[in-house]
Simulated scan of single mutants.
Amino acid sequence: MKVETFLYTFILKVVILINEGKKFENSIKKSVPENCYFLRLHDPAQSFNQTDNLRFSLQNPYDILLFSYPLLFCLELKSTEGTSMTYFREDFVDKTKKQSFMIKKNQIEGLLKANKSDGIVAGFLLNWRLKNGSQHTYFWFIDDFLQCTNTLAKKSFNESDVVNNNGILIEQTKLRTNYKYNIEKFIIDMKNYKNV
């Protein structure tokens, strides 16, 4: 009976985590101004089958494409109830065991590749869900992310690391059960930053 209770609790926690990430994603989507193009890159079916039997596995370079003339935003969304987020770095890899990072190698590489082109803003939208029910959400340029994480001695970063390394707070308003994010202001700020 204990094993069944443990499994039920574990599955319930996984479902809640998935739902919270989806809630964040949906809130972002609903916050995008109507005059912007929004595309969620759907995860390939095999990404849910975490076996080593596949010869290769398609993986999206990031979650969202958002276009507001003249800028294209390539964004990876992450949400956590914890105090930190793990990230891939080559020297963290232990080939003797299976590892999972919140921010994966292919996501870092995808954002870096996108960032090489003019007119593209590439980075992370990072959401911290705090125990008191409030949330803090930041945009972090891929370059600032790498500059910070390449020098960190730890295998995760926290909200302070983001704030101290040029993370941009996204204004948000709590609705009844979700948040509305001021994506319009974020886009305007990025256009001013990019001088377009």
Rank of each mutant, 00 (worst) to 15 (best):
L7F: 15
K97P: 02
A122K: 03
T177M: 00
N127Y: 12
N19G: 09
E159P: 03
K191A: 03
L17F: 00
E4S: 14
V121L: 07
D63C: 03
N195D: 01
Q99V: 13
T137D: 06
F141R: 05
L130W: 04
I28T: 11
P61L: 02
V32P: 08
N192P: 01
F6R: 14
R89A: 13
H42S: 10
Q99D: 10
S68E: 00
M1N: 12
Y62R: 04
Q172C: 08
D144C: 00
M102F: 10
T151V: 12
C74Y: 04
I142Y: 03
S47I: 07
Y181I: 02
D94H: 11
S156N: 11
Y138K: 07
V3G: 02
L71F: 10
T177L: 02
S79H: 10
D161K: 02
I11A: 13
N106G: 00
F92G: 09
K2N: 14
D143G: 01
D118Q: 08
L175W: 13
K185Q: 14
L66Q: 08
I142P: 03
W128N: 08
T80L: 04
S156E: 12
L146V: 02
N195Q: 04
S27W: 12
L77D: 10
F186W: 12
M190W: 08
P33W: 09
L126I: 15
N195Y: 00
I28W: 14
S27R: 06
D63Y: 04
I11G: 06
N164I: 06
Q99I: 13
Q59A: 10
E159T: 04
K194W: 06
G133Y: 06
W140K: 06
Y69D: 14
K13H: 10
R89C: 11
S134G: 04
L126D: 03
K97R: 15
N164A: 12
N49M: 12
F88W: 15
E90Q: 15
K180E: 12
D144S: 04
F186S: 04
A122P: 06
V15A: 15
N158H: 06
C36W: 05
K98G: 02
L12G: 13
K191R: 14
T149L: 01
